[in-house]
Nucleic acid binder design. Sequence first.
DNA 1: TATGAATGAGTATTCATTCAT
DNA 2: AATGAATGAATACTCATTCAT
Lengths: 192, 192, 192, 192
Amino acid sequence: MVKLQKSIEKRDALLRATLSLVNSGGIQSTSMAKIAAIAGVSPATIYLYFKNKQDLVNQLYLTVKSEFTHKAFEGYNANGPMKQSFEQIWFNMAHFKLNHRAESSFLSQCDNTPMIDEMTRNEGLKLIQPLFDLMLRGQNEGIIKSISPYLFYAYTIYPMSFLLNMQKRALFELTDQCLKESWALAWNSIRI
Amino acid sequence: MVKLQKSIEKRDALLRATLSLVNSGGIQSTSMAKIAAIAGVSPATIYLYFKNKQDLVNQLYLTVKSEFTHKAFEGYNANGPMKQSFEQIWFNMAHFKLNHRAESSFLSQCDNTPMIDEMTRNEGLKLIQPLFDLMLRGQNEGIIKSISPYLFYAYTIYPMSFLLNMQKRALFELTDQCLKESWALAWNSIRI
Amino acid sequence: MVKLQKSIEKRDALLRATLSLVNSGGIQSTSMAKIAAIAGVSPATIYLYFKNKQDLVNQLYLTVKSEFTHKAFEGYNANGPMKQSFEQIWFNMAHFKLNHRAESSFLSQCDNTPMIDEMTRNEGLKLIQPLFDLMLRGQNEGIIKSISPYLFYAYTIYPMSFLLNMQKRALFELTDQCLKESWALAWNSIRI
Amino acid sequence: MVKLQKSIEKRDALLRATLSLVNSGGIQSTSMAKIAAIAGVSPATIYLYFKNKQDLVNQLYLTVKSEFTHKAFEGYNANGPMKQSFEQIWFNMAHFKLNHRAESSFLSQCDNTPMIDEMTRNEGLKLIQPLFDLMLRGQNEGIIKSISPYLFYAYTIYPMSFLLNMQKRALFELTDQCLKESWALAWNSIRI
DNA sequence: TATGAATGAGTATTCATTCAT
DNA sequence: AATGAATGAATACTCATTCAT
């Protein structure tokens, strides 16, 4: 029991160490030695919790994606009005990304790295299934266009990644006003 | 004279080799040795054409971005109707991305790598200035919303990256029908 | 405990390997790979014990310089007659140089390399401070000339380097007789 | 004829380029490419004048050593009083070293590098034969001690190298006063 | 469970030298 | 005689992973 607790703590420490390192220097400059140092363990210990670096990054991906979706669907009532529900989820996601920069920067980096394997990506995709269910309801109710969920995601959720990236590069500030405009763009894009 | 020709060919071969390697394995696993091998030269030869790896990648970035924007503005008449002009550019961009997978995948990877330096990114940004000019005209004409160019880009051009990524992962097929729908989403997003 | 012992042994092996390689081929042709091979470890292992090549050479410098001065002041009584004390130190130094060819050749090479950093040189200089104290006493007692310690060193200790270099090149043999003559030259140079 | 002149100029330019580079960065960081660039020729051209890098450095060694001894024996009359003659040569050497830092720094670096081959060193040694002849005369006249020429050199000429090295490292200033003291040390060392 | 030590296989980069022109 | 282009072989150094304890 005590052992198990300790293990979970160490695993978490390793995940957190990885997250912070990836955030500050990118995946490629995040070495196992640095992760171990920050987590306060020996490099060899990492291999007791994760099969290898790829596994570590993949598990971190799932963990962060899970946190993200958990926050995204916080307070979500599957029976409420579609637009209102989606709006709430949309703003939840936006707020998560704004308030958890390290996490969202990590997720962005994962989009283009071959380090995340396809199976893990699919696992991650499943987590936002409720969003796609909601979308379907909207489509059935004739509120939003009948398009592929990929198109739906591309024009409502994905644009935020770009805006955050620009903000990270200090080219742009995502103010509350911008956020509202952004939501309007997203909604107008898909509504009928 | 002959030498110069030969040099340009070799430089191109190196850029092409880099492009294909980055496309298939990511920037980090693209080593100078592999690039040299594919280009059919010695690793040392790379340094006759590029200062270092970063320089090589940055020059490739500008080359590809330049090709992309060249195609994007092909046939563009700055005085034509705003919507029609934008539609043409939008489809030009989409077709480039569809027909030059390696190039667009490379550009996507560049978005999140620290290897492209800020100066080069700005050079790249300047290339699509005509698009922002067109956007301004549309805003002045009261056709599209008065929003930041970053929002404009995020909801009209950027979503294509997601769709291509999904297509690359074989989760989705970007058919002509989809493309038309996609344009509708983009335009509805920003139009007044 | 056992590990620590082992480590010290390996560190010593690396220092010894470096010493012998520098002795036989110069610092520049002493590569990390050769050092590792002679010490019987992997090149990567060197970096567990030393930060980089410069650090390795600097630590070797301090180690050897320390051995040298330790021998130089062996049996030295700071209160004895100045000339006698100096004579003893002088011969100690000479004998060290004669009996530890590799070490003294290494120290000679260090004189002209930019690899030894100024801080380390100063550390090394401090080790022979007792000699300069003795010199000062001799000057106060009116036994030797009132000259800069650099002049003092240049005309009493430094000439040995030349003689050893000539001996290494087999142009000259530093016999006991020569050593005595040499001491006479050194002493006559500085005495009043 | 004209060709030959041109060649000699280029050869000199290469030697001068090498000298200045070795002076500012050491032999090991003096690359053939840099030498060529400073001399204003192609790297390949160096090999028309010198067999390889070692040959280049060796020839430079002989050239500089020759300049040095030429200056050393300037105004020397082999029949004058021994002490006076030696004093003149000694100061000539000192002044050369003080006024030609690059050259004397280069010669110092040559002392400990395996790049100068034994044959070349011997050639260099022959150039100061007149000094050894003078020494012999002094010994025959009973003015100076009957010691090996190596001891003689070690205690009269060699110490200057140390002083110049210290001066280069800004630890010491070789003033006129110091120079006079230095000569006194040298002479007292060997005189009877 | 945990680790410090060790390393093989890599990395980008440099450079003396050669060769076709 | 002169060269720009090319390169093989080397360089110092890094890192994910393993292993003896």
